[in-house]
Design a protein around this nucleic acid. Structure first.
Length: 284
DNA sequence: AGTAGGACCTGGTGGC
DNA sequence: TGCCACCAGGTCCTAC
């Protein structure tokens, strides 16, 4: 689920609720969800810690705790972090349950069980492999057209593959990559290095635009995603290609197609996103 | 170097 | 209606 806008929405919804709570205990129902340290050590180390702040990096949610420890959570495909009352129903898909003071609890619910968490101090940061060498944040000042151009330069593989590479840009996933490429009028399978400077500019603007709009609508709820209160997002109503196979392109009415690019289901408009890449771009 | 393919899990959906 | 492939928003590992 969670790409950057979804994880950021979870962060914003949880911060005012979690901040100040002390973790009084933890129940681990699916030990593999706890990647570091070992589950027993994890449980012992997290008990008594107070939540100080919540940060996001790429698709990671980082819960900063007292005592210089941080809980790094990755929701992967179906993970949900839910702030609940103690005694509320616990879903059978709950992998880890944190008990909080004040009669509250934080449930990590994850149907597909791909979600993972690490409890690390500053020196152990490298234990979280997916945080190592993470690329730039797409809404940061570092992410410029020149950065995007350098990132795509010389690439013979599909441009979409580069957009999904977290070492280059942190936080883009399958939905927002497809949406950005459609808005920029670029076929996802085009070789990364084949984009003209004008196309790179358009793609840069489109990436920032879809991420910002996704955030403004509190994320995309296609299936599982909800924020820390269990509320769905609304950006799915504004998707222009993702999961719209056969339905008319909102720009030119050509039926949207599905294909596979970089191993991922990929949606595009064959009219607005020409495979040959003439550079003509989307026609208004 | 970079990319493709399988693995990790389980449930929902589209097509027959 | 019912069944069953196929598909799923992410990342990691291995093999080319």
């Amino acid at each position: 689920m969670p790409e950057l806008p979804e994880v950021e929405t979870v962060r914003r919804s949880l911060l005012p609720k979690l901040a100040g709570h002390t973790i009084t205990g933890v129940e681990i129902f699916w030990p593999r969800a706890v990647r570091y340290p070992e589950p027993e050590a994890f449980a012992a180390a997290i008990r008594g810690r107070r939540v100080e702040d919540l940060e996001r990096r790429g698709k990671h949610l980082i819960i900063h705790l007292s005592g210089e420890q941080s809980l790094v959570v990755h929701l992967r495909m179906t993970g949900r972090l839910l702030y609940r009352d103690e005694g509320d129903e616990v879903s059978p898909y709950t992998t880890v349950l944190f008990h909080l003071d004040g009669g509250k609890a934080l449930h990590f619910v994850d149907v597909r069980k791909f979600g993972a968490m690490h409890l690390v101090c500053a020196e152990e940061w490298d234990q979280v492999q997916s945080l190592r060498g993470l690329g730039v944040e797409p809404l940061s000042e570092e992410f410029t057209p020149a950065y995007l151009a350098a990132m795509l330069e010389g690439g013979r593989g599909p441009v979409k593959g580069r957009l999904l590479n977290q070492q280059r840009i942190a936080g883009l996933g399958n939905i927002y990559a497809d949406e950005a490429l459609h808005r920029a009028g670029i076929f996802p399978g085009r070789p990364a290095g084949s984009l003209s400077p004008v196309e790179v500019e358009r793609l840069h603007a489109a990436i920032r635009e879809v991420i910002a709009e996704g955030l403004a609508h509190r994320g995309t709820s296609v299936r599982d995603y909800v924020d820390g209160d269990g509320r769905a997002g609304a950006f799915q109503e504004r998707l222009r290609v993702y999961r719209r196979t056969g339905r008319p392109c909102l720009r030119c009415a050509t039926p949207i197609r599905r294909t596979v690019v970089a191993g991922r289901g990929t949606f595009y408009c064959p009219q607005c996103q020409e495979e040959t890449g003439t550079g003509a771009g989307p026609q208004e």
